[in-house]
């Protein structure tokens, strides 16, 4: 089953919103929470910023529902850049933007629970499901790469059903390995590097998301979809090309 992720309601009042980030950045947010249309809007707005290539803009990126822009303080100022952002925002309905071209569906095997997902039972309980039902839910529908971030090539995948709106834990788990599957706030992440985290570790994949030696060092792109299925032999996954994952074009 490869149905599209569920379309969420349009963003709430007060968006899109332009806010400053640090001393030399702007963030254009299209919603205050994870939202399918706002995610599309952010991706399309960032693509438009790249096309505009205003002088003094150093870098653009997207997060889940926002587009980020960093600029050179010697070449521009906040007022003129904010005015340009206002004009660009008003130029179309960004929430109606299509998803990026060239999207792919990745079928990704995961070893759930046990040593490879020590917090699966805890996460399932917070979501009000048995461990078996939790695995079934997480594998039932594709989740979309809503953004790449935190670490190189690392996807934020969503959106899970409402009962998976579980908070991060208050303490940090000191180390979760590369390729781990973790969950919080209706999202899944596969870690691209080993890292401390507040998300709960529920499984392990064989994905290598960041390949600095390759021409294209990043495996996944925003807009790609990922459909997980349960596997049991992690060593075999790790030896397989792309960790046992296979991709097909999404039309």
């Amino acid at each position: 089953m490869t149905g599209t992720p569920q379309i969420e309601s349009t963003s709430s009042a007060g968006f899109p919103a332009i806010r400053t980030v640090g001393v030399d950045g702007f963030l254009v947010s299209f919603a205050g929470q994870l939202d399918e249309r706002a995610n599309r809007a952010a991706l399309a707005f960032r693509a438009a910023l790249e096309r505009e290539s205003w002088p003094g803009v150093a870098e653009c990126a997207t997060s889940l529902v926002s587009a980020f822009l960093r600029f050179d303080l010697a070449a521009c100022d906040h007022d003129s850049l904010r005015a340009r952002l206002d004009t660009l925002l008003a130029s179309r309905d960004w929430y109606d933007a299509p998803l990026p071209e060239g999207r792919r569906l990745w079928r990704v095997p995961v070893v759930f629970g046990g040593d490879h997902g020590p917090q699966l039972a805890e996460a399932a309980k917070l979501a009000g499901q048995s461990v078996e039902d939790a695995i079934a839910t997480l594998c039932a529908q594709p989740v979309r790469v809503q953004t790449i971030g935190f670490a190189p090539g690392q996807p934020y995948l969503g959106q899970l059903p409402q009962n998976w709106d579980i908070p991060r834990q208050t303490g940090l788990t000191p180390h979760v390995p590369e390729a781990a599957l973790v969950v919080a706030i209706r999202q899944l992440i596969v870690f691209s590097v080993g890292t401390p985290t507040g998300w709960r570790h529920i499984g392990q994949t064989g994905l290598r998301l960041f390949r600095p030696e390759a021409d294209d060092p990043f495996l996944l792109r925003p807009g790609d979809e990922v459909l997980f299925h349960e596997a049991h032999d992690l060593d075999r996954l790790r030896k397989s090309p792309d960790g046992g994952a296979v991709a097909e074009a999404l039309t």
Binding site: V21, G22, V23, G25, L27, G32, Q33, L34, A61, S63, L64, V65, S66, F68, R70, G149, F150, Y156, D165, P167, R168, Q169, T170, G171, L172, I185, G198
Partner: peptide, 24 residues
């Protein structure tokens, strides 16, 4: 400087210099 709501906010862009407050 813990906040209750802070544990469920959306992941958002970080820049160097940001003062992050962890759960504790």
């Amino acid at each position: 400087f813990a906040t209750e709501t802070g544990l469920s906010i959306l992941s958002e862009t970080i820049v160097p210099g940001d003062v992050q407050i962890t759960g504790d």
